[in-house]
Design a protein around this nucleic acid. Structure first.
Lengths: 319, 319
DNA sequence: ATAATTTGTGAAACGCGTTTCAGAGCAAGC
DNA sequence: GCTTGCTCTGAAACGCGTTTCACAAATTAT
């Protein structure tokens, strides 16, 4: 392999000069610059990125921790991060966890090893205590409202859910169910808190069996619908935290001839194009923006205050 | 920073021995092994990944070249690659190109610089001539039927389209349109070839304005529908290469009261859950499998023959 | 008991670009 | 004429883990 020293020899200069030329440093005589470039050309020299990384102590690569790649939610976050990263000359490394703690820890371990310059954690499984010790002094951004960390960007889920509940109340609903991605994790907890707080204030009953968990994919929506159908005591409305799942519910309901919103109202989240296509009332959630902001937090040396993003309702035909 | 030499000093051994311990090489006395591990523990030593990469000449990281991150198609490929990569201890680096040639070339440049050990190109903009010169001797897998490369995995689009056309003929359609992601690129060309070949053999007319291009997102499907509506001379069926786009067409049509398949039949591709939800007839396309196979090709030293994946039709209510 | 292995270990070289430091050459300022 | 102050260069150190090679020590085989 041809390296910088061979270039130096052929060009008749020192390695420092070669390095200077290659990095556009000033203070190199035009003549030497040409000699170096000629040598680079002749020997087909290509820099070794790993040597640069080692020497510079950074890789210009940021890791993104996410559970799944085939959900629109994470695709959209990635898109946001990638767009911003591109502007700053950063690359993305993906740490897909499937919500497995080991895989998640591996990402942090890679960060410790300087394989990436930082991490954006879009969703997490390990406790913050576990992570806290290994991320000490490292550049990590969380997409949730974690009290303990300084770099964070998150959706105001609490208020969004409360606004959603109010909207449903205004339409006369008092028996409301909730359909969640999962029950643990800050974001889900915030949603649940908003849900229960609102119901309590309004004095409405909430039944355990009206809370549906592990709703990720469109198919899960279908399952939820069938569970709903089987309930003796049915809620008249569901707040669903993803348009994919809502699409499953709504399409299953329409197929079964259940009137929406007459028999079951659906208030969804994301405002994905799918919601528009299926005429689903949905909260717009600025997911891509969250990705962008996450990256911005990452590159900041002195972290600005946490970024809180708000949602806004798009009323359509399911409520 | 604490490095391997400090460990060696503290443990009273040579750096080679430390390296051996850290890499589970045999031929290390149990006592020295313990000394080394104690030192590692005491100094909180963590390996520098970049030094390993430089030294080993590889990074255990594979690059994935793709245009967009927020399309289910690419999310699914990624999922396939990531799953297989995990099994082999590889990580993923993302090169999002937006179909810009420069961004795509950058990915190849990174490969040359040994920042990644190989590339999986899911979709491409540069000509193969351009890429051919810079990927010489490098490990690159293409997801298309490129004559010039040895590592490739692709869907048999030609046959899929022909089968789709036959299916439409059998339902009495002779005026058929096509809705494509784009018109260039091997995969799209294969689809178009299948389309035109089939029409020619069947003796059916094909009109220029029945070919819709740049159909990527759900919204694009809506636009296509409105374009279709505006046509004086309408095709009675459309082959649509993505369920997202079909969803846009179908939902717009239903909203406008256009009967599907009575006035317009839709034959889609992907068999995404969405197709099921909207009762769209669709070809199952093993996209995830393609990702898995792509990675398998990547790790092979002597490339096996190209992997060709077939589609299979799921008939539902839109044809 | 001697030869042939196997086990165990360290020095040094290797992979390779960046950066600091010291110093030389040269022009502008007083 | 002499001092600042640039401009330009190269030697050497730095970042750091892996691997080869030579050799000693401990076994096993003959």
């Amino acid at each position: 392999m041809t390296n910088i020293r061979k270039i130096a020899k052929l060009a008749g200069v020192s390695v420092s000069t070669v390095s200077r030329v290659l990095n556009d440093h000033p203070y190199v005589k035009e003549e030497k610059r040409r000699q170096v470039l000629a040598a680079v050309n002749e020997l087909n020299y290509i820099k070794n990125a790993n040597a640069v990384h080692l020497s510079k102590g950074k890789t210009n690569c940021i890791g993104v921790v996410l559970p799944f790649l085939n959900l629109p939610y994470f695709g959209e976050i990635l898109q946001g991060i990638a767009g911003e990263a591109l502007k700053h000359g950063y690359h993305l490394q993906i740490f897909q966890t499937d919500y497995e703690k080991e895989a998640e820890l591996d990402a942090f371990h890679r960060l410790q090893m300087k394989e990436v310059d930082g991490l954006i954690v879009t969703s997490r499984s390990n406790s913050i205590d576990t992570l806290g010790t290994i991320m000490d002094g490292l550049n990590v951004v969380f997409c949730e409202n974690l009290y303990e960390v300084e770099k964070k960007v998150y959706i105001n889920h609490y208020e969004a859910i409360r606004a959603g509940m109010d909207h449903l109340y205004s339409k006369g609903h008092s028996r409301i169910g909730l359909c969640l991605h999962r029950t643990f994790g800050t974001n889900s907890e915030e949603r649940m808190r908003g849900f229960y707080d609102s119901a309590e204030v309004a004095g409405h009953e909430v039944r355990e069996e009206w809370i549906f968990n592990e709703c990720l994919h469109l198919q899960d929506g279908r399952d939820v619908f069938h569970q709903w159908e089987a309930l003796k005591d049915k809620p008249s409305a569901l707040i669903v935290t993803s348009d994919q799942v809502s699409a499953g519910i709504v399409s299953a309901a329409r197929r079964e001839g259940i009137d929406i919103p007459g028999e079951l109202a659906i208030l969804s989240f994301d405002n994905h194009p799918l919601a528009d296509a299926l005429d689903i009332t949905s909260f717009e959630v600025p997911i891509r923006k969250m990705g962008e902001e996450a990256f911005k937090l990452f590159i900041e040396d002195v972290p600005s205050s946490p970024v809180i993003l708000e949602t806004s309702l798009y009323t359509r035909g399911t409520v």
